[in-house]
Design a protein around this nucleic acid. Structure first.
Lengths: 197, 197
DNA sequence: GTCTATATCCAGATAGAC
DNA sequence: GTCTATCTGGATATAGAC
């Protein structure tokens, strides 16, 4: 591997600082309430550079989304490597989602609650993205090996993850005042019990 | 009661036809991708009349939201009148939500998945609106009378309704091909089981 | 690759006749 | 109360120097 001289010459990574400003503005005030001049001000990067790197405004949203989806996918791959039983995998997934919500609420908001179809009209819904199909696959595996009661896959997945997503949503909306970790054990007991015989 | 002569004079109710056009456009392409001229074209009502009735563009979104929230609140009041046990009330609520999703997907989309805070920055989140607090109150009642295991209110509500909301979301995103009614019984068994001793 | 200056367009909103 | 015609600001995007 060669040393990346180009990154040494410039002391900042423009795409990175733009994306950081963008996720903050998009989740705070919404994509459509955020103008490119807003991003210019917040990031300190000029209009010209932004368009050079991202093509247009939707390019920023797209780059951000792809980065975050990839990141979550990697996290789930990690979980599959570290846990054998479906039960402990599913629990770890929920723990990861709760932690991410607490530590980087903007990331979670951007992934779950931004209507990407409005920004990029021909994009598939988030729930069809790799990490989400992976979650459903775990459930299918659990049914195959008998850990989970036999039933419709979608119903099982919805029952297992639905409560967690509700709590995440309530937390991001400011309705839950205490951190999600405090609800985790009790929620998981309910979720797991819902798919037992 | 007097006969409403004014409604006889004009053969159409302008706010109504505007709201009908608006909910279609807002859910189809998003609030911010919909211009007032779009609504003018779709509704056949002039710019001037629209501004006369609604004040500004956000006024349309607001009127629509208030109407739909009120309607859902009334539906839940009906349910409380018709059912005594908490179990049958909760089941009826989910049945209502599933039916509404199938019959008027735009209404459900507008209530659940439009980011109203982006449109009206100082609006409370949907989950704080009357119908949603009513749903949580039912759960609290069920815990008080012993139908539901004693636990955190929010966890119980999330466990009971989370799966239903997931399925609604998947259905509106086109991921579930079959109508929600077909999943209803199985989902409810899971949801109810999740909060039993 | 990064910047400033600028073009173009169309949105939201208003004026004022009827 | 309803309409048409019109104003104005600010958004996205580009041109072109450095």
């Amino acid at each position: 591997m060669q040393i990346m001289i180009s990154t040494i010459k410039s002391n900042r990574n423009i795409p990175e600082v733009v994306l950081k400003a963008a996720i903050h503005l998009f989740t705070e005030q919404g994509y459509f309430n955020t103008s490119v001049p807003d991003i210019v001000k917040k990031s300190g990067v000029s209009t010209g550079s932004i368009y050079h790197h991202f093509g247009d405004k939707t390019g920023i949203a797209k780059a951000l989304f792809e980065m975050l989806v990839k990141r979550m996918e990697n996290a789930f791959d990690d979980i599959e490597r570290k846990h054998d039983s479906v039960q402990s995998r599913l629990r770890a997934v929920i723990e990861y989602l709760f932690q991410l919500t607490e530590e980087e609420p903007e990331v979670m908001t951007y992934m779950l609650f931004i209507k990407h179809k409005e920004i990029m009209p021909n994009m598939a819904p988030v729930c069809s993205s790799k990490p989400f199909t992976k979650m459903r696959q775990m459930v299918v595996d659990g049914m195959a090996n008998g850990e989970i009661k036999t039933m419709d896959n979608m119903v099982a997945a919805a029952s297992l993850f639905g409560g967690a997503f509700r709590l995440i949503s309530l937390r991001l909306d400011g309705v839950l005042e205490r951190p999600l970790m405090e609800y985790q054990d009790e929620l998981w007991r309910c979720a797991w019990q819902s798919v037992q015989k």
